[in-house]
Amino acid sequence: MEQLIQQIASGIANGAIYACLALALVMIFVSTDHINFAQGEMAMFSAFLCWQLLDWGLNFWIALPIVVVVSFLIGLSIERVILRPLHGAPVLSVVVVFIGLLAIFHSLAGAIWTHTIKAFPSPFPQVAFAGSGYIGPHQLGMIAVTVGLLGALFAFFRFTPLGLAMRAAAQNPASARLAGVSVDWMLALGWGLAAAIGAVAGTMVAPAVYLEPNMMASILLYGFAGALVGGISSPGGAVAGGFIVGVLENLVAYFGNLLEKITGFYLIGNGEKLTVALIIVITVLTLKPSGLFGHVTVKRV
């Protein structure tokens, strides 16, 4: 029983990271219909930036806001400089650009910081607390930070005029322009926010997976899975989907191990987590193409 709770708790912690990446993907998707394959590598790059600042002796909680702001600006510039000229271009050209970005961030990180694995210290105090039998301090901190971030973003989109303008621009660009909204800037802002969210996810997950240029590859896949399960057109759904995928993958491994222990028969375990996650995604999409929480738009014609 204790082990089950542990697995669920760490699933929630991983899920929080997947949720962040899922949200970053959805933010760009809702306004452009594109999936940014480079999202994971951008997050990895941000984590390296943070590591560099720590290496130079900065305190983590000072380094993090700097990295978030820098990542925001990088994301914003990518949209303004690289993607702006591609407005209206065929999907394939955009896909090529995303793959190019992925390769650039990957090799840039390798060139600057080498491919050797680096330890990334946890910013959270390693102390015992109520419930520390079930969850480690870093995992708990990770949940707190990411859930805080998601809450802040929710409040931003729900309650601020700028958040409202961004939602309007994503939903109906022509009408948003007629309401005086600079849709082009809202797009760039979306890219900046997505990069900033990725930066938080990257720095939070780095202590758990160690720092190296490939660190985000499978995490992005889980994030993508989460976004699809929850509904790629629904930010709230994507976040929920991220948590679902995180908990589910651990449960799969847990019950796989349990099955082996009882029957001696090995069906699934840690190695098959990703496979199972993808099977779940495909199943959900077959049964409900818009995702679990993806809304079918209410429309009168």
């Binding site: 409202l164 303008a165 939602r167 309007a168 939903q171 005086g180």
Partner: peptide, 19 residues
């Protein structure tokens, strides 16, 4: 040009956003 997924209130407020 209705923002179908936004509320009536939000539809109106978005137009006043730049004022």
């Amino acid at each position: 040009g209705t923002f179908t997924n936004l509320t009536v209130d939000e539809n109106l407020r978005v137009a006043a956003y730049t004022r």
